[in-house]
């Protein structure tokens, strides 16, 4: 989508044009969903977060000044909301552990099953599941940068615009993410052998 269409769409959205909103959703829904899915690793939750992203866009389009591309803005909201969701889930799990210590009945926190991304080639399914397991353990920013780069194919410059960081910072984060993933995978294989 080029800048003119972006501008046109933004103007129409600001005027409350329902057709423009539908067009926006149809154009970007898979992009937003795929980003959320990469970070959350749960299909239903990712769809929920993707919808929340569009709700926020609908409610706050008036504040969008058009300095960045619409897609950049959407990526930014999606990443923030997906990371918030993961944090919330972790908090829930921690409280569930605390409650279980006091013997209070809580929903049982089942160990997360392997996540299989629907877009991954069949030959790579098992390996990708191992990679996603390791990805879960990365710090937020490294996780977001890795997902945007690997699953959405964004170059460092564009990721920088999404994350509001310099290209060099993004490259550094990507480098650290790869190193940390390798270390986690080595640890995984060491534990497998024991």
């Amino acid at each position: 989508m080029n800048r003119f269409t972006d501008q046109h769409l933004t103007e129409a959205l600001k005027q409350g044009d329902a057709t423009a909103f539908k067009e926006l959703v149809e154009t970007f829904r898979d992009m937003v969903y795929n980003t959320a899915l990469g970070i959350i690793q749960h299909e239903a939750d990712a769809e929920d977060v993707a919808q929340e992203v569009f709700v926020q866009v609908y409610q706050s389009i008036g504040t969008f000044r058009g300095e960045a591309k619409l897609s950049t803005w959407l990526y930014r909201i999606a990443v923030t909301k997906a990371l918030d969701h993961v944090k919330k889930q972790h908090r829930k799990k921690r409280w569930a552990v605390v409650y279980s210590l006091f013997g209070e009945q809580q929903e049982t926190v089942a160990a997360a099953a392997d996540f299989h991304h629907p877009g991954v080639l069949l030959d790579n399914k098992e390996r990708a599941a191992v990679l996603f397991k390791a990805l879960e353990q990365l710090p937020d920013r490294q996780k977001a940068v890795f997902v945007l780069h690997k699953l959405e194919g964004l170059p460092a410059k564009e990721i920088g615009e999404v994350m509001q960081m310099s290209q060099a910072t993004i490259e550094g984060l990507l480098h650290r993410a790869r190193n940390n993933l390798r270390k986690l995978l080595e640890k995984y294989y060491r534990n497998e052998q024991e």
Partner: peptide, 27 residues
């Protein structure tokens, strides 16, 4: 490990459900 690191190469975009917009409108 290197094969695992490359396992997401060429992965397609996951697609949101068919009734995404309808559910969004309800929300």
């Amino acid at each position: 490990i290197e094969a695992i690191m490359r396992s997401l190469d060429g992965a397609g975009r996951a697609s949101a459900g068919d009734f995404f917009f309808t559910r969004l409108q309800t929300r």
